[in-house]
């Protein structure tokens, strides 16, 4: 049946990629915990992921908080429910928008850069050279990136949470005429520890996914400049998709009753 053939082929292809990715992730994680560990490389990646992403993530967060306050106001004012704005802002930012938007921005910066760098190393035989110099590429390239991703994303998201709430505050106070004291009090009353914690757990998972996709696609790229380009695109697209997908399931674990 020629109609069923493409479906079967696509499904087998999907299983193959899923299996390969799982093995890759397992190998990468196992090298994170087995010596030798390279502190210098981990630190360098932490600076790259954490420090240099701050401006991008901060700007994203502040404008998101600002627009959130403004949009909620135009909607809620109709029902005289303006007092719910601090609640809406802080819960949306900490639970969803902080981790997801920070994750997507870091994907754009980091997954792409990692796929391009490791991909270029692959096609110029630098990864083979690592092997011949008795250095495991997983240990040297993949593990430091995974560690840095998992540790740095939650910190970035914590900063994004604060900046995002601040964005909402600025618009509410200076544009919508809220009382600053009340706004802060409302925010602190509404926000629960679980809101922030769930966001940070998401961030850790996203950090893993972003760096994993960057490394996986870079590591398996082939065929010169075009192959590296494809790897970069695939890394960004797949990391973004996985972020949305995992975001739903983590939310379900935390908040579905």
């Amino acid at each position: 049946m020629p109609i069923l053939q493409p479906i079967g082929r696509a499904f087998l292809g999907f299983l193959e990629v899923a299996g390969r990715l799982t093995v890759f992730a397992g190998t990468g994680v196992s090298h994170c915990v087995r010596p030798p560990i390279y502190p210098r490389l981990i630190l360098r990646q932490m600076v790259e992921i954490g420090y240099y992403s701050l401006p991008v993530v901060g700007l994203t967060a502040i404008f998101t908080g600002m627009v959130l306050a403004l949009q909620s106001y135009t909607g809620f004012a109709r029902f005289s429910a303006e007092s719910a704005i601090p609640n809406v802002v802080v819960v949306s930012i900490t639970r969803e928008l902080g981790p997801v938007l920070a994750g997507l921005m870091v994907t754009g910066r980091i997954a792409a850069a990692m796929a391009a760098e490791i991909g270029t190393m692959r096609v110029t035989e630098q990864i083979d050279a690592l092997d011949t110099l008795a250095t495991n590429p997983f240990k040297y390239l993949v593990a430091p990136r995974l560690i840095a991703g998992v540790t740095m994303l939650p910190i970035l998201v914590l900063v994004a949470d604060a900046i995002g709430v601040f964005g909402g505050y600025v618009v509410s106070i200076f544009k919508l005429g809220f009382n600053p004291g009340n706004y802060i009090k409302n925010t602190m009353d509404f926000v629960e520890t679980m809101d922030v914690v769930s966001g940070l757990v998401k961030a850790g998972v996203f950090g893993f996914l972003i760096t994993l996709m960057g490394c996986y696609h870079g590591y398996n790229s082939k065929g010169g400049a075009q192959g590296v380009g494809t790897a970069t695109t695939n890394a960004v697209v797949s990391a973004s998709m996985l972020i949305f997908c995992f975001n739903y399931f983590i939310t379900e674990i935390f908040f579905a009753r």
Binding site: E117, E125, A129, L130, T132, A134
Partner: peptide
């Protein structure tokens, strides 16, 4: 692998 050294075709130097 420690017994081996290799000169790659395009040298494959680490550019980082």
């Amino acid at each position: 692998r420690r017994k081996f050294g290799m000169l790659f075709q395009n040298a494959a130097l680490f550019d980082s």
